[in-house]
Amino acid sequence: MNTLYIVATPIGNLEDITYRAVRILKEVPLILAEDTRHSRLLLEHYSISTPMESYHDFNKEKVTPKYIDYLKTKGDIALISDAGTPGIADPAFNLVRECVRENIEVRAIPGPSAMITALISCGMPTDRFRFENFSPKKSAQRLHLLERLKENADSTLIFYVSPHHLVKFLEEIKTVFGEIPLALMRELTKKFEEHLIQTPSALLAHYKERTPKGEYVLIFHPQGKGGL
C-alpha cells in the first residue's frame, strides 16, 4: 500500500525545512499543494522537480476521491500547505480522514507551525493551550466566542488574525477581558518579524499610528497569566 506524507514546510524563512522533508518531496511521484504558484518558489529553491497539483478548500470535496484512487493504484503522495504544517487551518484534514477510512498509510514529516512558534516564544503559559484558528469575520460572532471562552478560562488561547480584523478584535478582547497581557506575533521567521507583548490599550495605541500588515498570531491567557 502506498503512503500519504503530510509534509511541513517553512512559515517564512526557506531555511526552516528538514532534510527528510526535502528528500520526501523529491522522491514521491506527486505533490499536492494549496497554491501551486506559491509552493513553486519553495520547490525551485531546493531543486525539486516533482509534479504538483492543487488541493485546496474549493476543490477538496471533488478531487479527494481521485487522490484516494491514486494512492491505492499508482503511488505515494506528499501533501503540503502554503506554509507550516498541513492539517492546521487548511484542507489537509479531508484527505487524511479519507485515507484513515480506507486504511491507507499516513505519515507526518514534522516541522514548522506558526501557532507553536508563536506560543513558545511569547511568555504565555504553555502547559495548557487552545487553538481557535482564524478569528470570526463578524464582530457579533467574535464577541460571542470570547464570552464563551471566558467561561472556560483555564487555557492559553491562540488565534490567527487577519490584519483587516485586528483592531476591532483587540477592542473586543479589551471589552470582554479588560487590560490583560496580549502577545501579538507578526511575520514569524521573516525579515520583519515582530513580537509585541502589551495590553489591549497599548496595542490599540500602537495601531493608531500604523496600518496592520502581514500575518498575525494573537495569544493570551483569559486570567491574565504570563506576558507582562
Rank of each mutant, 00 (worst) to 15 (best):
L188W: 04
A78Y: 03
T175R: 14
K174A: 14
I173A: 06
F93A: 14
F220L: 11
N152K: 15
V106L: 09
D69T: 15
N94T: 12
T189A: 08
N94F: 12
T50E: 08
T199Y: 09
K208R: 15
Q223H: 05
S201Y: 09
G123D: 12
Y55C: 07
F177G: 05
A8I: 06
S39F: 00
F220T: 05
I24F: 07
V22D: 08
R210L: 11
V100Y: 13
L157S: 08
H56I: 07
E15F: 00
I104T: 03
H45W: 09
A33T: 03
I48P: 03
S47Q: 15
N59Q: 07
E105L: 12
N59H: 00
E215H: 02
Y55S: 01
Y207P: 08
I219Q: 00
I31H: 03
F134W: 02
R107D: 08
E53F: 09
P86A: 04
N94H: 15
E27L: 02
D127F: 10
E61Q: 13
E187L: 04
K138W: 05
D154M: 06
S121Q: 04
C99Y: 02
E105D: 14
P110I: 03
P136G: 04
E105K: 15
M1W: 01
Q223D: 12
P112T: 13
T126D: 01
R107P: 01
I219Y: 01
L196A: 08
I116P: 06
E98L: 11
E147A: 13
L79I: 10
R128P: 02
H164D: 09
L182S: 01
F93C: 14
L204Q: 07
K74M: 08
N103H: 11
A140E: 14
L228R: 13
H221Q: 06
V217K: 01
R142T: 07
K174W: 10
T64E: 06
S81E: 03
E98T: 05
A140K: 14
L146F: 09
K208E: 15
R40C: 05
H56C: 02
L203W: 10
A183L: 06
Y70Q: 10
V161S: 05
I68T: 05
H164S: 10
L228A: 07
S81I: 05
V7K: 00
R148I: 08
L25K: 05
I116A: 09
L32T: 00
R20W: 10
I219V: 15
K191H: 13
I6H: 00
K62T: 14
L43C: 02
G178E: 06
P181C: 12
L95G: 14
N152D: 08
I11V: 11
T73E: 15
E187Y: 05
K60S: 02
L143S: 13
Y46K: 06
R101C: 08
A21G: 11
K225Y: 03
L43P: 10
L119N: 04
C122V: 05
S155V: 03
